[in-house]
Write a protein that binds this DNA or RNA. Structure first.
Lengths: 209, 209, 209, 209
DNA sequence: TATGAATGAGATTTCATTCAT
DNA sequence: TATGAATGAAATCTCATTCAT
């Protein structure tokens, strides 16, 4: 394996910068109304030059989402490998997801709709997204099995969870009162403990379910 | 007050049919890649005729979202007026939201992004959306005040809740195993009771929070 | 020859009202950007109904210009028939033209370009316009022949004259300081006597003005 | 001050070529029925490329008229600066106007109506047109003050004059019997000396013609 | 690598005209 | 006669993509 030359390293950085910028424009405008013009302009680069690094707009979207999903998957994988109680693992996964999703590039999977991709690329993204969902669901399922989590419909619970966790991309703005971590922690509590106040004197309805 | 003539009634129905179809296309393709051509085609109507009923594509989106928010608001309002415990009201509101959002037209507010609207229309939709969010938050807050709900951050909890409740528009397809009502009920349980299993022998952690 | 019935008379009036309104819209917007919608709206009539009276937009323009040219021709004809000096006839013709052209309908020939008409109709308008120009030129020529007018190029002089006489349609607004007649009189003096001042030391006809 | 590069010079020329062609199409068809298609076709260039140089059709019209008025103003300004009698200056201004107006691009201000421009651009053209009219009127006024011209209503005379001078754009075709200069000279004589013949028995300036 | 220029397909929108009532 | 609806052919404009340098 040859070392990457300086030239090669520079090219990789350039590609990353482009993806980051593209992700930002996609988030701000939505994929379809985002224009290659605006991406190039924000990068202070001629539009034509984008095509040297990526062969088309779809590819730009694809790599954004792909990288984003890779980050999510590797995050949940390392959490799954920890020696912790299942509910603690889930808490950490929730925080990791929110933090990842509020980062410019890596949240790309959350803010752009899959239907904008052509058949083949769409399939690959959906497959990877399914992998991620399965990983999170596995966390839920093992929690249920161990008795740490309530015996809910794991699939539906995962979908509800992920829906909520992606939402902050629509309203979060850097510099607000709460950090991504803080938002993640709060979301985790909400999901784990629920909104209903436990009545101290009366055994939870949950046990009778 | 004149009775609406038959002609007028027909025109209203036509407008509604157009909105419903448009909402469907927007949901399937996203606003920007939805084409007036496809909307007209699904309606089996000449494209130009759409402009007899709505002056442009933006207006189509605006009225979809507007009608959708009206439905959501009137739903939460009638629930708020009931004589029920706060947690029961919240449960009903959750179900009502999911049911509404999985209807073609009435769910329009959930599946299309606001940034596609021009300044003025966007402002009106955001204002109405804020009204709806405030209504739901009021439900949460009164639940906290009455002690029925845990003392969480009401604003963040509302945002998490609504994020989750809108998510099914992305994966729900009519004819699936679960009806919209069933999904709503499950979501309500998840949010009210949380994922963590109440330990039967030990008083809830919630009280120590 | 049967008397026109009341119904027929009403139809003729309706047609005239339409032409007058159309001429106004053509003048305000130009033929091409004038819309049948606006004409109908100003008449407080449904657009479709216009087609009961005129078979298309071109016809509307054609009849406006045709009627306008008829008025101009009949005006110059009756002036030509008077027993007056040629220069006096020309003065009257100038006034008549300006007055006619500043009337809503009858000035139609001045403000709309001929190129908007299809081949056949355009030919007929051009022919009639040529007739009018010929009549005015005849006035100029007979003035030259009689010695009342200077021996100028009659054709070019006529074109210059008519160009100037049509111009007020672009800036005249009813209710201004000068009436159409006054404008016409002033134009006539300018054209007949010229701008150059007679030198005081040498007697000239100009000094008797 | 950097020299314009060859590339920049080429771009300027391209813009000018486009304006010239556009002016021709506007003259032939009128602004509204002129199509971007035809402009592109005459330039042997893809329609979309026009939008690389000008952002829309209105801008095309605006720059045509703007350039045209600039040419007229600079023409009248340099004439005003000459050391000549006022009537001689006016004669030259008339010739300059006709010549300018019969040139493809620079006559653009004469053949297209202002009402086709949107509010803001229209205002700028009208302002510039008013400047030009004021310059010509100043020539007339100073002629009257010096006694070289008759004491006419300067404003009305200017309007009559300009109306006549713009008319040839409607009938002049290159290759005709008279050159633009010749037409201008003839128009100048007509306007300065008038149509009425000096009576032979009474000496007058007219007889010295 | 990078750029300015060019292309062409497709989108929205307008509008004269027609049709059924 | 009159109307509201409907149609379809253009027209303007946008924009991803390509090309020559």
């Amino acid at each position: 394996m040859a070392e990457p030359s300086r030239r090669e390293r520079k090219a990789v950085e350039r590609r990353l910068a482009i993806l980051r910028t593209a992700a930002g424009v996609f988030r701000d405008r939505g994929y379809d109304s985002a224009s290659m013009d605006e991406i190039a302009e924000r990068l202070d680069m001629a539009k034509g030059n984008l095509y040297y690094y990526f062969s088309n707009k779809h590819e730009l979207l694809f790599f954004c989402q792909d990288a984003s999903l890779d980050a999510l998957i590797s995050g949940v994988d390392s959490i799954a490998a920890l020696e912790e109680e299942p509910d603690e693992k889930l808490r950490r996964a929730v925080v990791a997801h929110v933090v990842c999703v509020l980062d410019e590039l890596e949240g790309a999977s959350a803010h752009t709709e899959v239907h904008s991709l052509p058949e083949d690329l769409r399939g690959r993204i959906i497959a990877k997204r399914d992998v991620y969902e399965a990983r999170v669901r596995a966390l839920v399922e093992s929690g249920i099995a161990s008795g740490a989590l309530a015996p809910v419909d794991a699939k539906l619970a995962t979908l509800a969870l992920l829906g909520a966790l992606n939402a902050p991309t629509r309203w979060y703005r850097p510099g607000g009162k709460l950090s991504p971590e803080a938002i993640g922690e709060e979301f985790a509590s909400l999901f784990l403990d629920g909104l209903r106040h436990a009545r101290p004197s009366i055994p939870s309805t949950r046990s009778t379910r």
